[in-house]
Nucleic acid binder design. Structure first.
Lengths: 141, 141
DNA sequence: CCGTATCCGGAACGATACTG
DNA sequence: CAGTATCGTTCCGGATACGG
C-alpha cells in the first residue's frame, strides 16, 4: 500500500480513489444482509450457534452458517468448538471485529438519525411523477 | 439473558435490535456497488454526468443513472438541469449526503487500516483445509 | 445441537442499442 | 451531452432435506 505520488491538495479523501476495490470489499461485507446483525449480537458476549439463530430471526441456518464463516475468514469472529455432550460451538468477536463494530455503530447511528428524513425524501420523490422506468432496477429497490 | 420481558439492560446498543430493517436499508445503500464511489466523487465539488462516468470507470451508463437516481430519491444528492446548448446536468451532495460521506469516510478509513490484516486472515483461513463447500456462496464471496 | 448439500426464484449488474 | 429500453447472465439468499 504505497502512495503513487504526492497528492497536493487532498483536503478531501484519498481512500475514495486509491483503494476502491479494497473499500468495496469491506462495504460488501457490511452491506450483505446478515453480517452486521450478527456482529451486533456478538457485541456484548460470546454466543452459541442456535442462540445467534434465534436472536437473528428470521435468518436461515444456511445464511447464518455462511455469514459466520465469512466473518471468521476475515478474522472478525472466532469459532471455538467445545467437545461436550451435545456439541457446543461459541462465536465471539475478535479485536478487529470489535473495531468494525465501532464503525458500524456510527453507521447505524447515522441511519437512526436520518431515517425520518430519508423516508420523507423518498415519499416526496415517489410522489413527484415518474411514470415508469425500468431503471428502478438499479441499486437498492 | 434470563429476563423474559423488559429490555432493561440495554447497556449495549439498541439500534442493533430496534430498527434493524431501518439500518439494513441504509446498509444496502452503502453496500451496493457504486453509491459510495459516486458519493466520494461528489465530495469536493459538483459534477456532471459524464464527468462522474469517467471518474467512476468502469461503471456503466445504466448503473450510474440508477445509482444517481437512488441517491436523489433518498435526498443525498441534488440534480440540477441547465438548459444550455448541449444539455448539462449537475449533481451535488446535499447536507445529508455530506453527513453520510463523513460516516463512509470512517468506514473507508477502517478498511484501509485493516486491509492487510484481513487479506492475511483470509489467505490463512483458505490455506487451512476446507476441501469444498457450497456454503462459500454465502455473503461476500 | 451444529451444521452441510441441493434446488430454485429473483434481484443486481453488465452489454448493447436507441433517443432528445 | 445525458439519459432510457431491452436482453442476458451472474449470484445472493430462502426453503428444504440430510448428516455428525
Amino acid at each position: 500500500m504505497a502512495h503513487p505520488i504526492a497528492d497536493v491538495e487532498d483536503t478531501a479523501f484519498e481512500a475514495c480513489d486509491e483503494g476502491r476495490a479494497l473499500v468495496r470489499d469491506v462495504l460488501e461485507r457490511v452491506g450483505d444482509k446478515w453480517s452486521v446483525v450478527v456482529i451486533c449480537q456478538l457485541a456484548d458476549t460470546t454466543r452459541r450457534f442456535n442462540e445467534l439463530r434465534r436472536m437473528s430471526e428470521p435468518i436461515t441456518q444456511r445464511m447464518l452458517s455462511a455469514t459466520l464463516r465469512g466473518l471468521e475468514r476475515d478474522g472478525l469472529v472466532t469459532r471455538t468448538v467445545h467437545d461436550t455432550k451435545p456439541p457446543r460451538v461459541d462465536y465471539a468477536l475478535t479485536p478487529r471485529g470489535f473495531s468494525l463494530l465501532e464503525v458500524v455503530r456510527a453507521l447505524a447511528g447515522w441511519a437512526e438519525a436520518n431515517a425520518a428524513g430519508i423516508v420523507h425524501a423518498r415519499t416526496a420523490f415517489d410522489a413527484r411523477g415518474l411514470g415508469a422506468s425500468d431503471l428502478r432496477r438499479g441499486p437498492a429497490a
